[in-house]
């Protein structure tokens, strides 16, 4: 019985993942090809360039831009099915190679941001929840305020303070760890505020449960109660949202990488979109989709590990997906 359920789950999960990838590719293909303008001209340097008509014709032929859209789409999907992401129009590189070069800085930034966001959220919740009216109000208002900060604005403010005024951190670069601090904080503080709000709310609900009261009656300290009993309950909603948050972070790196002159996929994506570089745009979107699918898997496992109701956890987490 359980075995059949598990295989069913696996199949529909794979189906859903494939559906996601297919939808990513199709949506992106359509969005890029619907953009106004002629990619051949852009490849040659735009309205200001001085190419010969022969060069324009050669590009149109090389990238198949003269064929009907549906044929181009068919060819593209066919190549994707063979694992070929194609060659970037604008970067003169295989898309896979661009991804290989650009993914690590972006993944490092996004995952450090997620980690920092959780750290900030937990510190805020732990230090302030049910610690008297003043402290908990302060904590809650900090959470809400942090969540209201636009990451790119925060990034500029941090840049101004720490790089231009205090000269504590490098204003640009992607090689050193120090150059990762400001970008990561710009993303982590707003997300942390959001996670803290969610966690605080579920923490308060958990703390109102009868078993907490009885634990306190048994003489456990507030800290012990929080750690041993309430935490697991309180973490679940935030954890469930983490895969989504990681996806959102990957999207937001586009702006943050530009502000801090970092290399990475976000900036490459913005560039690829503006250059109507269909293979590169699609490649990056597919990559983000894969990252999301994998992150969901990991998050689900963490969710099951954390969930105290282990007996029912499998069914519950399955319902998250199916």
């Amino acid at each position: 019985m359980t075995k059949r359920l598990a295989s069913q789950r696996l199949i529909s999960r794979i189906g859903l993942s494939l559906g996601m990838l297919f939808a990513s590719a199709t949506l992106t293909f359509l969005a890029v090809r619907m953009m106004p303008g002629d990619p051949a001209t852009i490849i040659l340097g735009g309205a200001m360039a001085n190419p010969t008509p022969g060069a324009v014709a050669a590009i149109t032929k090389e990238y198949g831009l003269d064929r009907p859209l549906i044929v181009q789409y068919g060819f593209y999907i066919w190549r994707l099915l063979h694992g070929d992401l194609g060659i970037s129009f604008s970067q003169h590189l295989h898309v896979a190679e661009v991804l290989r070069q650009q993914m690590l800085p972006t993944l490092a930034l996004a995952s450090l941001s997620l980690f920092l966001a959780w750290a900030l959220a937990l510190v805020s919740v732990f230090c302030t929840v049910r610690r008297g009216r003043v402290l908990s109000s302060l904590g809650a208002s900090l959470d809400i305020s942090a969540a209201a900060l636009p990451p790119f604005w925060l990034g500029i403010v941090l840049l101004w303070i720490f790089a231009f005024r205090l000269h504590l951190l490098p204003p640009a670069g992607s090689s050193s760890l120090a150059s990762l601090i400001m970008p990561a904080l710009s993303l982590a503080i707003p997300l942390g505020g959001f996670l803290a709000q969610v966690t605080r709310e579920s923490m308060e609900i958990a703390l109102d449960q009868p078993f907490i009261l009885s634990a306190r009656m048994r003489g456990l300290s507030m800290g012990q109660v929080l750690r041993r009993h309430a935490l697991r309950h309180a973490l679940l909603p935030g954890i469930a949202l983490s895969a989504w948050a990681l996806g959102a972070l990957l999207g937001e790196t586009a702006v943050i990488e530009a502000i801090f002159s970092r290399k990475g996929l976000g900036r490459t994506l913005v560039y690829a979109v503006s250059a109507q570089d269909m293979p590169l745009t699609t490649g990056i979107v597919l990559f983000v989709t894969v990252a999301y699918i994998l992150a969901s898997l990991v998050i689900e496992i963490i969710h099951e590990l954390v969930d105290p109701r282990l007996a029912t956890s499998r069914r519950r987490s399955a319902s998250l997906w199916l």
Binding site: G45, N50, P51, T52, A55, A58
Partner: peptide, 10 residues
């Protein structure tokens, strides 16, 4: 033409 030159070739 295959060089895709926008400047030198022009």
């Amino acid at each position: 033409p295959a060089t895709q030159s926008g400047t030198a070739g022009g």
